[in-house]
Write a protein that binds this DNA or RNA. Sequence first.
DNA 1: CTGAAAGCGCTAACAG
DNA 2: CTGTTAGCGCTTTCAG
Lengths: 334, 334
Amino acid sequence: MTKKTASVPALMDVARRAGVGAATVSRVINGGQNVSTKTLAKVQAAIQELGYHPSQAARSLKGAKTKTIGLIIPSVADPFFSAAAAAIQEVALEHETLVLLAASDNQPAREREQITALIQRRIDGLILAPTYAAEPTMLQHAKFPVICFDRPFPDKAVPTVLADNYGGAKAATEHLIRNGYERILCIGGDAPLFTSQKRVKGHRDVIRAAGLPYLAELNVQDYLSTRAALDRHLAGRQKIDAIFCIKNELTVHAYRVLRERRIAIPRSVALLGFDDFELADALEPPISVIRQPVVEIARKAAEMLFKTMEHESVGKGMITMRVELVTRGSCGEQ
Amino acid sequence: MTKKTASVPALMDVARRAGVGAATVSRVINGGQNVSTKTLAKVQAAIQELGYHPSQAARSLKGAKTKTIGLIIPSVADPFFSAAAAAIQEVALEHETLVLLAASDNQPAREREQITALIQRRIDGLILAPTYAAEPTMLQHAKFPVICFDRPFPDKAVPTVLADNYGGAKAATEHLIRNGYERILCIGGDAPLFTSQKRVKGHRDVIRAAGLPYLAELNVQDYLSTRAALDRHLAGRQKIDAIFCIKNELTVHAYRVLRERRIAIPRSVALLGFDDFELADALEPPISVIRQPVVEIARKAAEMLFKTMEHESVGKGMITMRVELVTRGSCGEQ
DNA sequence: CTGAAAGCGCTAACAG
DNA sequence: CTGTTAGCGCTTTCAG
């Protein structure tokens, strides 16, 4: 063998093998315009034989788009975000674009690293669910469009798509009150999170307006802390009669605790969660929830990103998507 | 302004601004060895001011690794695969590597496109859950290591990590028989899938060996087809007394149908599923399942990939991970 | 310690 | 229709 065989074939290798110039090969791999049928065939044959694939790196060096967008979410395992990722994927596919997926784990430091790594890869755009302490300066120099979803980016006018957290929490609380509950416990974690704050505020505003006691446990994270919090409020003379869960998993934890303690839902205590979840309707009783339009939010964000990439203006504001109260019986409805 | 300000700053821009040569800037961004403290400071300042980030594209043109691996899964929304993706992410992060995530939707054609797109981006390695008809030739010329998980790659000796589908199905069926069930219906979809076939075979082998009737509905896909299949086998004189579900979602569908039809689990019909799922233990009754070690499988695959990338040999075979029977009561256990 | 220059794989003029 | 050539942004000798 006369040539080096070990490395990946380059355009020039194809050119030599086909006995043509580099430009001709370039023409072929870019649609084959202005190339004679014979040459075309020769080049395509050479491409096949060598197993040649053009290098995206070289292309983007020449200024081409990378056909790659970045997506940073807290966790891929979280159903909310994996559903969002799937929807974004789909939109990206429609635009023949790949998704570089990064997980921030809600850690600002990691988020910074991921953003840096994505910038170095010259992504065409970025979709981001920022941590509570995202670095506003990071994207200052960014030459690509950025869209946030689920949470806004601090201190900077990044277009954002999210659910109406405040309104949803209000609707939830009003629903409980309407059904006759008066001692409503709000449990939530991740106090610094934008979404949590909005939801807590929505809940509290309604409680205050109704003149009911404001009961909250906002440092609940996992099953154990949920159980501890509930036990505290299910004992004594001033028992709660309803629970409003700020987050997905907390609803499940609360459900488990109530079952375990043999407390009837909704007879003794009503249960209402923010965010729908798989099997919420298969539990006993089925759990009422505020449902966010996850897929719509994610698709919207992705579509806005691609529009911006195509230089269509999408505005700078915050797009709030309506949430939906899904009543299933855990609040004594119907 | 004397220079073009619109585009992303390049190394040379930094060099000019700092009044040094290109090589010096290169040294700085690569650890700053052999650079005087003064020069270092000057260059770093220039980098800050310009918001400079080295171009990964240019680097990999020079032969550097892309620090990017590809991951192709059927769907990001599927809990099994999103859990796997999360685990792979984590391993990648430990190796300072990003993940290009692509979804094949189990379509061979799409899979081919995604592989091509990944090859063009010169990924350092690929993790793949292949479709049933993956193109064996696609990876022929690939110059990067490939590891499969959950399913093997046809016709090619790609190292693969997967669960013991056959053994799991056997264990499941034996468990049902041990608990006294004799008319066991096996429902499953995606017949062409490797995992499905193994599971069906494991089930059938045990049924045959026990001299029991082999009852199967292997074209069940969604809720409706599940209901139709079950209705067929829950009527008439020859009723089934147990259901073994080949896949995750089918277990949930079957559970829903049984509840709806007010058929007692496990008193009238036992239910056992392959693959654990969130809230399986919160249903009424809690559902027994065969649990695959998702995270372990994914981590293992990722670790093998990185080992191969570091030229450590990992063998060519198939690594089968033990599955676990989780008994929760839906088969009349205990 | 520092800079000049070659070249990685490709595309885009520009000649022929 | 086709080939030559000049970079894109970086790393890497090789001189200074």
